[in-house]
Amino acid sequence: MTTDPADRGVHEEHRVQGVDHAAFPTFDPAATVRFYRDTLKFPVVHSICAAGWGPAEHPDFIHFFFDIGNDDRIAFFYYFGHEPVGDPAARGDAWARLPEGTPEFFANSRHLAIHVDSEEDLLEYRRRLDDSAWPCEMQVMHETIESIYTHDPNGYMIEITRALRPVTPQEDLDAALTIDALCEVASGPEPSLDKLLTRKAELIVERAADWDAAQQAPSGTGAVPR
């Protein structure tokens, strides 16, 4: 338990404890259960059977939850009698079908990534997927992470990922500078990576040396200067 006042301040400000649940609609609960419970072996940990939800037009529904580790959960809604809208052949998922011409990178940008600790664990999930109707579509090892990807029966992209090394303190500084530059550039005319990197260089010159000095100092808190 830390007694550093600065650390206590960070703790009091940032009090959340991870994902309680991330919820998605499904039109195929049986396949959803085969994927999450029977294939990935995520335990069913909770469910709600509800006759409507107050307003008369709200359909009866089942809300069911799978444990994704760390007491975090992925949850689904199945609404009795509610049919999907949109072209089922269009890019997208059970929640929405995207307009024609939507690029794949954009469709795939929204996804859930579930963490594992080791290569052994990652390969175990790959094996489970490859033995199922939802085989691994892609396995990628960047220099810093390794991930496998598939789409669940609802069309939601699921990633399982492991870190190849811990995140370093300087990456927190780098992220802070990127985000400050991004907010400025994206709020201005014609945002571009060139403009962001030019602004970020100015922020590096303004703040990186001081950050380094604070890291070296015995009272350094690791907090990112603003």
Binding site: H142, E143, T144, T198, K200
Partner: peptide
């Protein structure tokens, strides 16, 4: 020796320079 992901994300800032 950089591969795809790191190579395309290695630049942190540009000072009087243009890629």
């Amino acid at each position: 020796g950089c591969r795809h992901a790191v190579w395309y994300s290695a630049v942190a800032g540009l000072q009087d320079a243009r890629i």
